[in-house]
Design a protein around this nucleic acid. Structure first.
Lengths: 276, 276
DNA sequence: CCTAACGTTTAGGCATGGCTAAGGAGCACA
DNA sequence: TGTGCTCCTTAGCCATGCCTAAACGTTAGG
């Protein structure tokens, strides 16, 4: 079902380092440089980094990020993602547009401004850190933590998030390989070649399971197809819809084990082609 | 700094077992048994044990508990505690009264019903557990965690709270000796004799610093007056307004150290008179 | 080029939870 | 037994964020 979203591609992180580096005052005045009174209200939000956005606003920002990344997300799309009706989205987008968090064009959709993007990444970061904490320290399963992190991400402070990050050893990727935005607003990058495109006999290291579908994640993990695992493509079923793989990973207790995987799932497994 | 404690005393848990034992269904129907139409709305809230109370409602319940425990809290008192105006409190109390969370008598005040008490304790438990986590695992200072826990306590689930409790080793008291309500709704008890009432030459073990004043807490802790510390009253200033004490504790590195304490502060230090 | 279908926006409401202003209860002291 | 004074409540209002119903833009097919 839920297909992963945006193809966070390699190039991404640099571009972001740029926005993030920009103290975001210059950006805005250039990009949306208005001289109207509304600027005042907006200014407050920036000076101190984020004058407490409501959690609803945060949800919208995050939804836009997940749906479109740096592109444009449509009203209906956002409504579906958040489980609200389209009119609610229209109203909220107008408001957020006024606060310079999104660029909104009626009937077209909304995209994140640098400030909105920054806030969205802050939330995603919190979300992933909280999930990791719950799983690694409290013993939750990966399928139990999403909703709770969803709530908590809106109330934890910057300081809490950073202390938690340190407590977790500053992870850059979650256990499925999903990149955890950094505190400075940049996003770690990782190899993105789909396992499905691996050539015969070549060796592949898994970096990311590109899906939000829990059944798929659970299936892959039960077979130790997870970040760090190394595989070799031994053969293909005629037609190419089934891959016969073999584990060759080192840390993996699975060395030598065989694995059959459909092309469909293999295309969700991202990683890199290793030189032997 | 943050010292563990969990001096879970032997006898404890009984008194509370009584209240908590009451499954709160019987209580309510007997106590407030109305037959009017409003019952419907209220009924929904009870059937499933607590149909997600808003965080505001929770704040009110907690405030009443902190201010009055099982007694009656006045409108103004609650308003001050929560930082809202009196009319807001009146309105909220009426609503909560309808939901059978408090017993509200206009112009008199409100007290918790069993259901309200249960919810208040749930929140207090979460609050204290979160504070302990932040301090002991994330390295926060005790004076930094209150507000954040205040926010988080409203969003963490039962399961999260219990897993966190286990992660923290099921503490029964926070580091200031404040009792942490148990998951079953009972409250640990500890000795409550004020240090100020100690007789000359007698030995005293600190169990609790009975104040929320941060300056006082910091002052006492900087002198290692904290749960577990053991002191002997050596002499009194004429008039009895100053106590000359000496540390005799075992776990305490402070053994033999002298301490002068005003009667005022000594009355905030609760504990027990030890037989020598 | 026009029109139907779809998605989006406007209009009008509702619930929550807060506020100020103004009137009423309760109590203490004369 | 009144008379203040304090505290509490009632009345009326506002902001947020959601909803439904209805009008409107956009776009693709005839």
């Amino acid at each position: 079902m839920a297909k992963e979203h945006k193809a966070a591609n390699a190039a991404e992180a640099n571009e972001t380092a740029a926005d993030a580096g920009a103290p975001l005052a210059s950006d805005r005045s250039a990009g949306a440089g208005l001289t109207d009174p509304a600027d005042d209200a907006a200014a407050q939000h920036k000076d101190d980094g984020a004058a407490r956005l409501s959690s609803s606003v945060g949800d919208y920002l995050k939804a836009i990020w997940l749906l479109a990344g740096d592109g444009v997300a449509g009203t209906g799309e956002i409504a579906r993602e958040l489980g609200v009706t389209a009119p609610s989205v229209t109203a909220m987008l107008s408001k957020m547009s006024g606060a310079e968090l999104v660029a909104y064009e009626p009937y077209r959709g909304a995209s994140l401004t640098p400030a909105g993007r920054r806030e969205a990444l802050r939330l995603v970061r919190r979300h992933l850190l909280l999930e990791m904490f719950m799983v690694t320290q409290l013993g939750f399963g990966w399928d139990e933590v999403h909703e709770e992190a969803e709530l908590m991400e809106h109330v934890v402070s910057d300081v809490f998030a950073e202390r938690l990050a340190k407590h977790l050893d500053d992870p850059e990727f979650d256990p499925h390989g999903y990149p955890i935005p950094r505190a400075d607003g940049s996003v770690p990058v990782a190899p993105t070649m789909p396992l499905a495109e691996l050539a015969l006999g070549r060796r592949f290291r898994v970096h990311r399971l590109m899906t939000r579908d829990r059944a798929v994640l659970a299936y892959l993990e039960s077979r130790t197809v997870e970040p760090g695992a190394e595989l070799v493509l031994r053969s293909l079923e005629p037609g190419g819809n089934l891959l016969h793989l073999e584990f060759v990973g080192i840390g993996n207790g699975a060395r030598g084990r065989k694995l059959a995987l459909s092309r469909e799932l293999a295309s969700l497994v991202l990683g890199e082609n290793l030189v032997e």
